[in-house]
Amino acid sequence: MRDTAAGDGAISPARGGASIRVRGLSKTYGRPPRAVHALGPIDFDVAAGEFVSLIGPSGCGKSTTMLLVAGLEPMTAGRVEIDGRPLTRPLSDVGIVFQDHLLLEFRTALGNVMLQQQIRGLDRDRQRARAAELFARLGLVGAEDRYPWQLSGGMRQRVSIARALVHDPSMLLMDEPFGALDAITRTQIRHDLELLWLDTRKTVLFITHSIDEAIGLSDRVLVMSPAPGRIVEEIRIDLPRPRPAHLGDYPEFARYARRIYEIFESLGIYRFR
């Protein structure tokens, strides 16, 4: 998937995705008397261009994992390698999407996306063309000059995705990006993200606690235990793409979902009688 020739469309990436390799990664917040062991140690790999979800209960360290992989929080122990190089400073070849869009209220939709160009000092015309294409792909045409408060929750999150992709990073980190959206909007945006990913083949690390989302999007799902989070199971999702709105069409979906529920039950996250 790496170093594929750049296509004509602005969306076609100049490069494929980056690979992630995580070994013995753990995080403890605070100092000894009141230290909180939040995560790990965990090991996992994400291949270049792969879509991997981390699923687990609230507070299990999923978001922390994402911040550590991005080099935005110091790790307590372990190592992270991006494309084989150890991570020592914040990763810049990356796009990040957070749960509640995190758009700047004082910038228009396009202005929020062009923030990347301004801060990173990229070529303005090229970035504008990429932004326009992303807006078209994400159903945002006509929303360019609207401020975030003038957009619906789903559209804000679409702008946020455009902002994460406009500078053509090799990796996309998403922290419960659809968590604040209603179920109907969520299903549509999931599909649109999948199509975009199929075209660009960025490496994606997707944090979620929705079983539907994890199975609907991922090549692999990593299931995490409650804090301090560990990876307790790896499930390879072998479903054709693009996947339908109603995942129940596939008998395998029920099998995957059942497996995740079983793990959650065995961990005491679910206690159904």
């Binding site: 810049s92 990040i96 700047l104 301004q118 801060i119």
Partner: peptide, 25 residues
């Protein structure tokens, strides 16, 4: 605070962070 994560992942200078994020906020 997560806006600072975004700024750092974009390699933003102090001035850019101030000018584009902090001051207008």
């Amino acid at each position: 605070p997560r806006l600072y994560y975004l700024a750092r992942s974009a390699d933003a200078s102090r001035w850019h962070t101030f000018r584009h994020i902090e001051l207008p906020s």
